[in-house]
């Protein structure tokens, strides 16, 4: 009897959120590369977090700058120390929403082309971006994929003359994340 009242109380308290279907991940993969004739730079972060609200189409992403891994340790150090200043600006965030959230039925597996609009904050500088992507609806998960380009200059990332030929003006960013339901 006691157990049932507890259960009932729980359902009452949390029942509201069960409808607002939210998805999340803590191991979103965010990759970027910079390619110039002189140098190819590639880095990957496999521990990004993301939360997506299917009802409203809103989403938030966050990656720790220090969690980007490079093939060359020195590049990683310079990335953190000289360019991203990761002690001052430890993370990059994106806060945005799908542009046509109502078009999708999250119960039926399918592949959907989407556009996402929102504010991307890197190196303490916010910029509104609009990027294309796909959302693959699976049995119980959502897979987000997107490829877009960014320019370091837009985020106040200073690249000195001596390495200007080694770092591309536009950086290609790839995002791949599989989100699971948040409240079961």
């Amino acid at each position: 009897m006691q157990k049932r009242t507890i259960l009932a109380a729980f359902l009452l308290a949390f029942g509201l959120t069960a409808q607002a279907q939210r998805f999340f991940t803590r191991d979103a993969k965010v990759q970027f590369n910079s390619e110039t004739p002189l140098e190819k730079i590639e880095a990957v972060n496999k521990s990004g977090t993301a939360v997506f609200d299917a009802k409203t189409g809103q989403m938030e992403w966050k990656v720790l700058i220090k969690s980007f891994l490079f093939e060359r340790a020195l590049m990683q150090e310079h990335f953190n120390e000289n360019y991203m200043e990761s002690n001052r600006y430890p993370s990059a965030t994106f806060k945005g929403a799908l542009m046509q959230p109502a078009d999708m039925d999250y119960k039926i597996p399918s592949v959907n082309k989407v556009r996402v609009k929102g504010a991307l904050t890197i190196h303490g500088v916010s910029k509104d971006i609009e990027v294309p992507g796909t959302i693959t609806i699976g049995e119980s998960t959502l897979t987000f994929q997107s490829t877009f380009t960014l320019s370091p200059a837009d985020f106040g990332i200073d690249i000195p003359g001596v390495v200007r030929d080694k770092i591309a003006k536009t950086i290609v960013v790839k995002v791949n994340a599989t989100l699971s339901p948040m409240n079961k």
Binding site: R22, R26, T49, V51, N80
Partner: peptide, 18 residues
């Protein structure tokens, strides 16, 4: 608002570098 706050702060070990 804050969707990410739903996840709570994930604590990581941050080593001093450089």
């Amino acid at each position: 608002g804050d969707l990410l706050s739903l996840l709570g702060e994930e604590s990581t070990v941050e080593y001093a570098t450089a």
